[in-house]
């Protein structure tokens, strides 16, 4: 359903993406791994049009994303940003139900609030955080609010940029299960960026490893350990020695 074909992106002299090819099938969970700064966030932002690739094409359901009707296109997506990106002037519940309070999906206020509280509960937050401001929450709590916001309107396609970074192991487990559930029960298509190998194993149907601006390896999660690729091997075992340099 999502296809990246020879996508290139540079920032000045920094060639971040150098010909990325990737396919994500409908209703599956793709996990992207790769070293810090290799361009994972840039790759998913370019699908949403937040970053404009220098060359290459990105299609969703066969339609070029640059030619799709922007509003209809974006209405299908949810996104958790790596930094949370919560609106700091709005209380938590209005962040979560932002989409349900205005625009084409607008619902009555009480209903939007009830949905927000329910989504907050699913990411392990109690109803009393609903009226607080994002700045009053811990980093991990902000991350989970961002997650609740990404799933609030039940989108078809959801991107999670490091959903478990900054969470305790129990909460990370809760979030991993939630993402898995969203794929299997709601049939959503997801792309998740993570550095946490236990997340990879819980969430992924397929794994892709980004290295040096290209997809180094991609395949079903079950084949990851026997991929026989020294880069993948070094990465999933977290070894300092190997083909991937430690200083980048």
């Amino acid at each position: 359903m999502i296809t990246l074909d020879d996508v290139h992106k540079s920032f000045g002299s920094n060639d971040v993406l150098r010909g990325v090819n990737l396919h994500v099938a409908k209703g599956t969970s793709m996990v992207i791994i790769g070293g810090s700064g290799t361009g994972k966030s840039v790759a998913i932002k370019s699908i949403l049009g937040l970053v404009t690739p220098d060359s290459g094409t990105i299609t969703v359901d066969g339609t070029d994303v640059t030619k799709a009707d922007r509003d209809a296109f974006l209405a299908r997506f949810g996104m958790l940003f790596q930094g949370g990106a919560l609106f700091d002037s709005l209380p938590v519940w209005q962040n979560v139900s932002f989409r349900l309070l205005r625009g084409s999906l607008a619902k009555p206020k009480e209903e939007a609030r009830a949905i927000a509280v329910e989504k907050l509960r699913r990411v392990g937050l109690t109803a009393d955080v609903a009226d607080r401001l994002p700045a009053e929450l811990s980093g991990g709590m902000q991350k989970r609010v961002g997650l609740a916001r990404a799933i609030a309107a039940d989108p078809e396609i959801i991107f999670f940029d490091e959903p478990t970074t900054g969470l305790d192991p129990i909460m990370a487990g809760v979030i991993n299960d939630l993402i898995r559930e969203i794929v299997t029960e709601m049939g959503a298509t997801t792309m998740t960026i993570t550095h946490d190998m236990s997340s990879v194993r819980t969430i992924a149907d397929h794994v892709a490893m980004l290295h040096a601006g290209k997809i180094r390896w991609t395949g079903p999660v079950a084949e990851m350990d026997s991929a026989g690729d020294p880069y993948v091997d070094q990465f999933i075992h977290g070894r300092a020695e190997g083909p991937i340099e430690a200083v980048r």
Binding site: F77, M79, L86, F87, F98, L105
Partner: peptide, 16 residues
Amino acid sequence: TMKVTEQIDALVTLST
């Protein structure tokens, strides 16, 4: 500040 903390990008992804 909204721009540098990706809140503007977040607005876009929320169809606003």
